[in-house]
Amino acid sequence: MILACDILFWGFLAGGLAARYAAGRRGLGKALLLCVPLIDVVLLGATVLSIHDGAEPTVWHGLSAAYLGMTVVYGHRTVRWADAKFARRFGGAAALPRPALYGRAAVRDAWKSWCRFLLAYAISVGMIFALVALVGTLDKGAPLLVWLNPLTKVLVYSLLWPVATTIWPGRAPEAEAEREPKLEPELEPEPARDTRQGR
């Protein structure tokens, strides 16, 4: 089910954008793109029904919860990124300039990225514990809790980037240019003058 939902995610995304820009059928493209978030609902429903019907919890049930947290947070950003690419390729839209991040802007962007992953982490962990509660006991839900370890490690290790950016935020290109020593142009020696009379 997880594999099928992942394939459907990219299938609806590519199909919706192709219909909107390549085929010029904006209504159909919009309908296909609206199906993208429904995939998360289908996956969540299938996972809950599987456990509710008495299926033994496995690491795959836990993976579906972890996967949902990521798609809820990053799915919309992925759609916007792909839409911009298709708009440029088939719609003739101009590419948006990527700002050079340095100083406070770089620090702010790094922390926003980490907080975004923190939100995905919180959703995934919340869903995992919700499934454990549905199972009834921690012993039965132990296979679900397996995913807490890699998720937490990624969260902690990814914290290194905003911390490093805060310490070394980088400098503006103008500031870097000002720091470089300016070399004075070498002057050519003046030709020697002949001070003798008549010459």
Rank of each mutant, 00 (worst) to 15 (best):
M1L: 12
M1K: 00
M1R: 06
C5K: 05
G11P: 03
A18Q: 01
G24A: 08
R25V: 10
R26Q: 12
L28I: 14
K30P: 01
K30V: 08
L32G: 07
L33N: 04
L34R: 12
L34S: 11
C35H: 00
P37L: 08
V42F: 04
L43G: 06
A46I: 05
T47L: 06
T47F: 03
L49D: 15
I51Q: 02
G54V: 04
A55E: 15
P57K: 08
T58N: 03
T58K: 06
W60H: 06
A65C: 07
A66C: 08
L68D: 08
G69F: 04
M70K: 02
Y74C: 04
R77I: 12
R80W: 07
R80D: 14
W81C: 12
G91H: 02
G92R: 08
A93I: 03
L96S: 13
R98D: 12
R98W: 07
L101C: 04
V107Y: 01
D109A: 14
W111S: 04
K112E: 13
K112A: 13
W114Q: 09
C115N: 11
L119D: 02
V125M: 03
V125F: 00
M127K: 03
F129E: 13
A130K: 00
V132H: 03
V132E: 09
G136R: 14
G141C: 02
P143Q: 12
W147K: 00
L148F: 04
P150A: 08
L151T: 01
L155T: 15
L155I: 14
Y157K: 15
S158Q: 11
W161E: 14
P162E: 04
E174G: 09
A177R: 13
E178S: 09
R179H: 11
E180I: 12
E180R: 15
E184H: 05
L187A: 15
L187C: 03
P191F: 11
A192W: 05
D194L: 11
D194S: 06
D194N: 14
T195W: 10
R196I: 06
G198L: 07
